[in-house]
Design a protein around this nucleic acid. Structure first.
Lengths: 238, 238
DNA sequence: ACAAAAGTGTTAGTGCTACACCCATGT
DNA sequence: ACATGGGTGTAGCACTAACACTTTTGT
C-alpha cells in the first residue's frame, strides 16, 4: 500500500540535478477601473508561438528573490507603483504551458487606481502595457485566459470581505462610483438603496462632508475609505 | 515610469539557462477524521536540518508531469488511494525555504476516509506516514507549519460550499458524526438542532431509512451523500 | 422648464440563534 | 431502572430583496 521510496521531504541528503531544471515565473493580473468597466493591464507577446497576442505582465523569478517579492518587483517595474494590493491566486503547472521550456507560473492579482498608470501616455513605448476591458479580452497568449478567469473569480470572492475599492478608486469618490465598481466586478446590477444601506452600515467609509463640483445635476457627497475603522473591523470579525 | 525590458511574456526567443535552475515540489496536506479529531498524515523527515521532525507528504515534480498530476501521484503512492478529493491551496516560494536548493513548493490539500489508510498497520515501514491530530502537531520541518495552517484555513472556507463530508466519512454515517466532523474542522461547537435543520435543508444528504445497530442507546438514522442531488445543486447556485 | 443623477424608507420574506425536553435502545 | 445519545419546534432578531418618488444642480 505504501511506497517507501525516499522523497524530498523524508530522506534526501541532496537532490539529483535533473530536478533543478525548471523555471518559475510570476504573472500579475493588474486590475483597474475607469468608472465604467473593469480593466486589466496587458502587453503584447513577442514569443514566436503567440506573436502579437496579448499577455499578462509577468517575469521569471530570479534565483535570489522570494516569490512574493518578485510579484511586487514586476508590478513596480511595469507601473512604477509601490505599496499596492497584491494577492496570490493560483499556480499553473501544465507541462506544455510554455513553449520555451518547463515554466511553472504563479499568478497574483492586484488592484490599482487607473489614473496612477495612464496607458495612453505610455503607449508609445514598445512593450508598454495597455488597459483592456476584461469583458473584451480576446484570446490571450499562453494559458493567460485561464489565469485571468481564475483571478476574476478570486476578486469576486474577496469583494465581500475586503475594501476592494480602496485600491481601485481615487481618494475621494461618490457612492454611485463605488456601486459602479461593484457592479463591474460582479457583472450584475445592484439596487441603489440596498447597496447604500449595506456599504454604509459596514462602517468602512468616511463621509467627507464635501460635494462634487461642476456636475450637471445634483452634486453627490464624497466619501473616502476609513483605514483605521476598517482595520479594527477586521479584528473584531473572527 | 515604465521599464521596457524584455521579459518572459513579452519578447523572448529563448530563456537564459540560468533561469532553469529551480526545482518544484508538491506538498500534500492529507486530512482524515477519526470520529473525534481532525488528523493530518505526516512522515519523518531525514533531511539533515530537520532530522526526526515531522513533515508533510511531498515530492518533486518530474520534468514530464503536470503539477496537478504530481499531486495525485503523491497521494496515490503514499496512501494507495485514487480518485480522491484534491485542491490546490497556495504556492510557497521563499528563497531559503529548502536547505538543499531553490525549491518552490505548491501545496494541495486532500480529504480521505481514515479507514482507507490505516497508519497503524503501515507504521512498521520506514518512511511510512502516520496520523497526527492537527491540534497537536508540533514544530514541523521546512515551512510546513505555515502550509498546514493555510490548508486548514482553506478547508474551513470550503466547508460551507462543498460536501466535505463525502470524503472524510464512511459511506453511511449519522448526523451526529457529520456534526462532529464540522466541529472538528471549525474548532467550535455547533447547535444540534440548527445544524440538522440546515444540513438537511441543503438537500445533499440521502436518508437511507436504516438504523445503527448494536449501540447502547437509541440507534441513529443513517445517511449518505447524494452526489446527483449535490451536483444539480451546484449548477443552480450561481 | 427640463434633464440628469442624488438621495431616501418601508414591507415582506428568509435565515440565524438560542434554547429544553422526551424517546429508543442496551445493560 | 438507569445511562446514553437520538431526535424534535418555536420565538426573536437580523439581514435581504423589492420597490418609487422627491431633491438639487446645470443648461
Amino acid at each position: 500500500m505504501v511506497d517507501s521510496t525516499q522523497n524530498i521531504n523524508s530522506g534526501l541528503k541532496s537532490i539529483e540535478e535533473r530536478f533543478f531544471k525548471s523555471a518559475i515565473s510570476v504573472d500579475c493580473v493588474i486590475f483597474g477601473f475607469d468608472g465604467k468597466d473593469l480593466k486589466v493591464l496587458l502587453i503584447r507577446s513577442h514569443t514566436a508561438e503567440f506573436k502579437g497576442q496579448w499577455s499578462l505582465v509577468g517575469d521569471l523569478l530570479t534565483p535570489d528573490e522570494d516569490m512574493d517579492s518578485a510579484a511586487y518587483r514586476i508590478l513596480s517595474q511595469r507601473t512604477g507603483l509601490d505599496d499596492i494590493y497584491l494577492e496570490q491566486v493560483h499556480a499553473f503547472g501544465r507541462v506544455e504551458r510554455h513553449p520555451l521550456g518547463r515554466v511553472v507560473t504563479v499568478a497574483y492579482y492586484s488592484l490599482i487606481n487607473i489614473n496612477d498608470y495612464n496607458a495612453e501616455t505610455e503607449a508609445a513605448y514598445e512593450n508598454s502595457a495597455t488597459w483592456h476591458s476584461v469583458k473584451e479580452v480576446g484570446k490571450l497568449a499562453f494559458d493567460h485566459n485561464e489565469i485571468l478567469a481564475a483571478s476574476l473569480e478570486h476578486l469576486k470572492a474577496n469583494l465581500a470581505s475586503r475594501p476592494i475599492g480602496i485600491n481601485l478608486l481615487p481618494e475621494k469618490f461618490t457612492l454611485t462610483e463605488l456601486q459602479s465598481l461593484y457592479e463591474a466586478i460582479l457583472d450584475k446590477e445592484l439596487d441603489k438603496r440596498n447597496f447604500r444601506k449595506k456599504i454604509l452600515s459596514i462602517g468602512m467609509l468616511k463621509d467627507l462632508d464635501e460635494l462634487q463640483k461642476d456636475v450637471a445635476h445634483r452634486p453627490a457627497k464624497l466619501y473616502s475609505f476609513n483605514r483605521e475603522g476598517y482595520d479594527t473591523l477586521l479584528k473584531s470579525a473572527f
